[in-house]
Design a protein around this nucleic acid. Structure first.
Length: 450
RNA sequence: GGCGACGUGGCCGAGUGGCUGAGGCAAAGGACUGCAAAUCCUUCCACCCGGGUUCGAUCCCCGGCGUCGCCUCCA
């Protein structure tokens, strides 16, 4: 069974399932106010690999991932551009799922929108106020973090240390809050802002309240795994958890956090730094599979640098696999080599060691080629390669359909070679390559793919 | 100030108390090929610094240096 690093206990431990055979996962999704960047792509890819691996293992996965469609940043942009905020959220969500589709990220089983859950958020906040864990101020409702015994569990810091130093930081709502770390559950709206009714006045929910309500509603108490980027560890996940704990509910059993995409200087790509590389640009210029390949070569918890060189390497890795797929397209189906599959499991179960899994994949490809060159039975190895690819979501391109025109040229090329008219053969090959085909002239005739 | 991560060859990037060092890319040579391509073989072979523990450390401990992250915008 899969072992994953758990942020709460700070150790790699088995992912225990609430219900055998089923995995419930909550992934914090995007706030839809701009195009997805490389960091979003990484997070969704990491958890897509996790999901596919679990499903490949025979488990049924319920993956809920929200869309935060009400937020200060959305309102700001709507104001700035003078258009309805819904216009922004709808458009951005379409772009988001379109991009994820291109990356080969399967759509989550549940996609809750924050705005669909406002009523439930209001009632949860009401409960927190009723049991005196939250309090009402002039600008909203706040959770009292001091009332949560183990607040700071995910941040691995106690409340006191957290407030030490930290630079000159503005504490939001400081004039009304009982403790500087208390956070807003409900923000009263200013005139003209989108708002929903509540017992405390018209307003909107705080970000941290959205995810706790949606995750508990869809997945129930004690769901298996909560994940997201490392930057969400604190305060977002800490605060989600604090609300659940304050309510006396069991929250996520296991916490998983992925590392950042960093720039060539090793600095995090951040919206505030303005060094965000756009995911859409990346996919426009490169095979979208290359990003998945790049991420698979590194560990999900470490930082990843995305450079031209990295991506180029990944494209070449894909070419090797595609070539393999084309070569083995005719190999009869067989049961996958049990030894390879067992090793693959072992590596993935060890905190998703995808780098080791890829090493195994390439080793298996090489062994298969040797078997094919030697004329021995390669079918189980071929099947194993396809199993691994399927489990991590790598879709191989075996060449696809060759249009009649290209097929004719390939046939003419073979004929020219048979007639030893190499000048004509080379000319035909050059033509095909100019059309974007990868031309492999083999003993069995010319093969085309692209 | 608190908490944490990282420092491996030309590049990317795993990993391990011992014959150290996955895999990919790049480079060189070779096999195959009319030539290429694809494939295979070979070569190139690195663990920030200083202490300590140990029979033995890149991996454990301590200290340093360097880089980065979080400490209420953030995947």
């Amino acid at each position: 069974m899969l072992h994953l690093y758990d942020t709460a206990t700070r150790q790699v431990r088995e992912l225990e399932l609430r219900e055998p055979g089923t995995v419930s996962i909550y992934l914090c999704g995007p706030t839809v106010y701009g195009p997805p960047h490389l960091g979003h792509g990484r997070a969704t890819l990491v958890y897509d690999v996790l999901r596919r691996y679990l499903e490949w293992s025979g488990l049924s996965v319920r993956l809920a991932s929200n869309i935060t469609d009400i937020d200060d940043k959305i309102i700001d942009r709507a104001d700035r551009e003078g258009r309805p905020w819904q216009d922004i959220t709808h458009k951005c969500e379409t772009v988001w799922f379109d991009a994820m589709g291109k990356l080969g990220v399967a759509r989550p089983t549940d996609v809750p929108h924050a705005t669909e859950y406002v009523d439930q958020m209001v009632s949860m906040i009401g409960e927190l106020v009723a049991i005196d864990r939250a309090y009402v101020t002039a600008d909203g409702v706040y959770l009292s973090v001091e009332s949560v015994a183990d607040y700071g569990l995910l941040a691995n810091q106690n409340l006191h240390d957290m407030l030490e130093g930290g630079g000159e930081r503005e504490v939001f709502g400081a004039e009304h809050k009982r403790h500087p770390a208390d956070f807003a559950l409900w923000k009263l709206s200013k005139p003209g802002e989108p708002s929903w009714p509540s017992p405390w006045g018209d307003g909107r929910p705080g970000w941290h309240s959205e995810c706790v309500v949606m995750s508990l509603d869809l997945l129930g108490e004690g769901f298996d795994l909560h994940c997201g980027g490392m930057d969400l560890m604190f305060p977002h996940h800490e605060n989600e958890r604090a609300q659940a704990v304050a309510l006396g509910k069991k929250f996520a059993n296991h916490w998983m956090h992925n590392g950042f995409v960093v720039d060539t200087e090793g600095e995090k790509m951040s919206k505030s730094l303005g060094n965000v590389a756009n995911l859409l640009d990346l996919m426009e210029h490169y095979d979208p599979r290359a990003y998945r390949m790049l991420l698979l070569t590194s560990h999900y918890r470490g930082p990843v640098t995305v450079t031209q060189k990295n991506i180029d390497d990944s494209v070449k890795n894909l070419a090797t696999l595609d070539s393999f797929a084309a070569r083995t397209a005719g190999v009869a189906a067989a049961a996958a080599d049990a030894d390879v599959v067992a090793k693959f499991r072992e590596r993935m179960d060890d905190d998703l060691d995808t780098a080791a899994a890829l090493a195994l994949l390439f080793d298996t490809v090489r062994r298969t080629n040797i078997a094919l060159d030697g004329g021995t039975d390669a079918a189980p190895l071929v099947a194993a390669v396809h199993e691994i690819c399927a489990a991590v979501g790598l879709v191989l391109n075996a060449g696809g359909d060759v249009p009649a025109e290209a097929a004719e040229k390939a046939a003419a090329l073979d004929a020219a070679r048979a007639a030893k008219d190499f000048a004509a053969a080379d000319a035909l090959r050059a033509e095909l390559q100019a059309d974007g085909w990868t031309v492999e002239t083999t003993k069995d005739g010319t093969k085309l793919r692209r």
